[in-house]
Amino acid sequence: MVTTATSFGRNGVADWIIQRFTALVLASYTLFWVAFFFITPEINYTIWQELFSQLWMRIFTLLALLSIAAHGWIGLWGVVTDYLTTRMMGSTGLVLRMLVLGIYAIVTIAYLVWGIEILWGAK
């Protein structure tokens, strides 16, 4: 099945687990930032630099970036296989689906590479 081939884990169970796990990562990352801004009276370059010089923070941030990519992919794949189906639109459905997912993939990979460069490239 063409539509199944593009699902992230190629299996509903894997997709479901990935979706929940990435949601947890993103929720904790968000909570971390809320807490951080809350307890840090003044944020300046030194504090920022110190935070991101720590390995755990870089890994945590990378994990969040990867989670956004995977979470968004599975979510978007779910949406387009609901509304842009071959059953309703014929081959137009497939073309539109590939287009939407293709754009998402390009944008996401670009941000991912950029993010990694920011995290590990800066001195």
Binding site: T3, T4, S7, N11, G12, V13, D15, W16, G78, T81
Partner: peptide, 10 residues
């Protein structure tokens, strides 16, 4: 037979 992304997980 139910583990694909559609049968149950939709």
């Amino acid at each position: 037979g139910l583990s694909d992304p559609f049968s149950v997980f939709r």
